[in-house]
Design a protein around this nucleic acid. Structure first.
Length: 297
DNA sequence: CGTATTTGACCTCC
DNA sequence: GGAGGTCAAATACG
């Protein structure tokens, strides 16, 4: 952060402040909702508003991440590289069609016949808790790696086969106490059927290569979103735990959105005061191209 | 019984 | 040749 140009830092601050304010609005809506539990009509009218607020918060986070990415390219003296072009082959369904062996629609003749993904992550985060990222993931493998003390877990987007979504992520526990997880994302979601918020940015250094960033919610419909929301806030539905065996003990973590929220709820220290809402966060955000960029609150 | 996870096998890349 | 990434059969789970 220290190396960020002042205009970039200001933009990031503005995005964060915006996100904080919207989150506060959402909180007020939820508080109001709990106080008007017996007025079904009123409650019904609030849901779309709350939904809109959630989308704005997500959008704000996305913008912040993108700004950090852009500024990082500045500070590290690297050419600005649009995120999506780094692994464009993930994006292009035509590419898949050209290679039957790798096609989602043509079963592989041989086991393990695949093309290894780009080694350049789209983005990367370090978190003391397992954060909800708004997508549905399915685990497809785990591995002990050379320099890692803990298992690395591999996830693909749930919509890989039904919509050809190429997004994958790796979750690597990197520290025992306090628990710290590194989540690395590869590829971009292109799954449809979700409430999608797309934003277009012009990179500060090149007006000819706009950066395009997509952030989609995993919910197939408004009803599904509402159902999900209710499960989050009522702490009712419990998805199965994912178990990550360590060397000497078992750590469980939550895979699904509702549980991530619950974790956040339990482990994060929120200050809900109107003018000073802060996430107490041991988390850092690292972005693209393998270079770390620590973001300390 | 359908879907998600586990886990050993197998493949690519360095 | 070894490390890392993915596949897919077996298994677990709701």
């Amino acid at each position: 952060m220290e190396n960020l140009p002042s205009n970039g830092r200001k933009a990031i601050e503005e995005e964060l402040i915006k996100g904080r304010d919207i989150a506060n609005q959402l909180l007020e809506v939820l508080v109001l909702k709990s106080n008007t539990r017996h007025h079904a009509d009123l409650e019904g009218s609030m849901l779309p508003f709350a939904e809109d607020l959630v989308r704005k918060v997500l959008c704000s986070f996305t913008n912040t991440l993108l700004l950090l990415n852009t500024d990082h390219c500045y500070s590290s003296n690297h050419a600005v590289i649009p995120i999506l072009t780094k692994d464009a082959h993930f994006q292009n369904p035509d590419h898949i069609k050209d290679e039957p062996c790798k096609s989602f629609f043509h079963p592989r003749k041989r086991r393990g016949c695949y093309k290894r993904k780009s080694s350049v992550p789209t983005w990367e985060t370090n978190n003391s808790i397992l954060m909800e990222d708004g997508y549905e993931w399915r685990k497809y493998g785990q591995k002990i790696t050379m320099n890692a003390k803990y298992l690395r877990n591999y996830y693909r987007c749930t919509h890989k086969y039904d919509e050809g979504c190429p997004a994958i992520k790796q979750v690597q526990r990197i520290q025992e106490e306090p628990p710290l997880y590194r989540t690395t994302y590869y590829g971009q979601h292109n799954c449809k059927g979700s409430l999608s918020t797309e934003i277009m940015f012009e990179t500060a250094s090149s007006s000819e290569s706009p950066m395009f960033f997509s952030f989609s919610s995993p919910f197939q419909s408004k009803e599904q979103y509402q159902l999900h929301s209710s499960s989050v806030f009522q702490s009712a539905k419990q998805e199965p735990l994912e178990v990550i065996p360590d060397d000497d003990h078992v750590v469980h973590k939550q895979l699904h959105s509702s549980d991530y929220h619950l974790l956040c709820e339990y482990e994060s220290d929120f200050n809900y005061s109107r003018h000073g809402t802060m996430l107490s966060s041991a988390e850092s955000v690292l972005l693209v191209n393998g270079n770390s960029l620590h973001f300390d609150g």
